[in-house]
């Protein structure tokens, strides 16, 4: 079983936004939803490996900054072409104001 990784403070992410988190040679995106919940996906778009950190979070979707493909960041589901392949998602929990992810 993978360990929980301390990724960031909850305050590091604005509401309805995301930040990039790099760990162990991999890159992730951590989101804060309008309901103040936290989620984590792979950081790179499945279409052309562009990082999602500069993308737009709208409610529960993340839009890739290069080609405007969209995913549901809660499930990783690809919602809008040109993305066809879902994003990998990871478990998240919040403890004492810290966001922890299990990868």
């Amino acid at each position: 079983m993978s360990d929980w990784i301390d990724a960031c403070a909850t305050d590091d992410i604005d509401e309805e936004d995301l930040i990039r988190f790099d760990h162990g040679g991999r890159t992730f995106a951590i989101y804060r939803s309008p309901e103040d919940e936290f989620f984590c996906t792979d950081g790179l778009c499945t279409h052309e490996q562009v990082h999602l950190e500069d993308g737009l979070v709208m409610e529960h979707t993340i839009e890739c900054p290069k080609h405007n493909g969209r995913f549901d960041y809660r499930t990783g589901e690809a919602l809008r072409a040109p993305v066809c392949v879902n994003l990998a998602t990871y478990e998240v929990k919040v403890e004492a104001g810290r966001v922890l992810i299990r990868i």
Binding site: H47, E48, K66, H67, A81, P82
Partner: peptide, 13 residues
């Protein structure tokens, strides 16, 4: 609309 969505994605890449 399908062809050109992909064509235009390539144009931006």
């Amino acid at each position: 609309p399908v062809t050109w969505r992909w064509s235009h994605a390539r144009h931006h890449t």
